[in-house]
Amino acid sequence: MTVRVLYFSWLRERIGVPSESIETNAVRVNDLLDELREKGERYKLAFTQTSSICVAIDQELGDMDSDITKAEEIAFFPPMTGG
């Protein structure tokens, strides 16, 4: 399946693109992260420590164990700082 993957804040800067289409068979967010780390050094660096990274699946907050087999859009970002 093809998913749209989005990056925000310093993750976007580190990876170098705001979004991209990824061909994946990942079942969980963690599987997708493993695949992304394979894409190169920038990804590996960005996703070294995932304890401080948030994920949204189709614009709903999830976690690294969330099922993504039906997802169309997956976003990674650091903790939010609104208000």
């Binding site: 970002f77 939010m80 700082t81 609104g82 208000g83």
Partner: peptide, 14 residues
């Protein structure tokens, strides 16, 4: 509302 806007609304400040 402000407590949740701070850390549950997807904004990032630089």
């Amino acid at each position: 509302l402000m407590d949740f806007l701070k850390s549950r609304a997807p904004f990032w400040k630089k």
